[in-house]
């Protein structure tokens, strides 16, 4: 007997970072740690640490929302050559 089910949080094994063709570059000197990028990231790939915003590139799909919502323009999107 198998009850079809999935274990909690196991989607984190999907490294969706491989999808992106651009990625955020965070200028830590400008970052004010407001958390706008982390709050709006659809992937939940951004963490605010004591040094500022940190992107987990395993999951970042490169949408660019973080750069758009950053109030101090600390994030720029750079193209990735594949």
């Amino acid at each position: 007997m198998i009850i079809p089910h999935a274990k909690p949080g196991t989607a984190s094994k999907n490294k969706t970072g491989s999808w992106r063709d651009q990625e955020p570059d965070i200028n830590k000197n400008k970052c004010i740690k407001c958390g706008m990028c982390a709050t709006h990231c659809p992937e939940g790939a951004i963490e605010i640490t004591k040094d500022g915003a940190e992107v987990n590139y395993d999951y970042c799909k490169g949408c660019g929302i973080c750069a758009e919502v950053c109030p101090v323009k600390a994030i720029t999107m750079r193209k990735i050559k594949k």
Binding site: C34, G35, A38, G44, I48
Partner: peptide, 16 residues
């Protein structure tokens, strides 16, 4: 606003 990814109840790796 400090924030840890591990606290999320909806985790990274979804395929939206």
């Amino acid at each position: 606003m400090e924030f840890k990814r591990e606290d999320d109840l909806f985790v990274s790796g979804h395929t939206a």
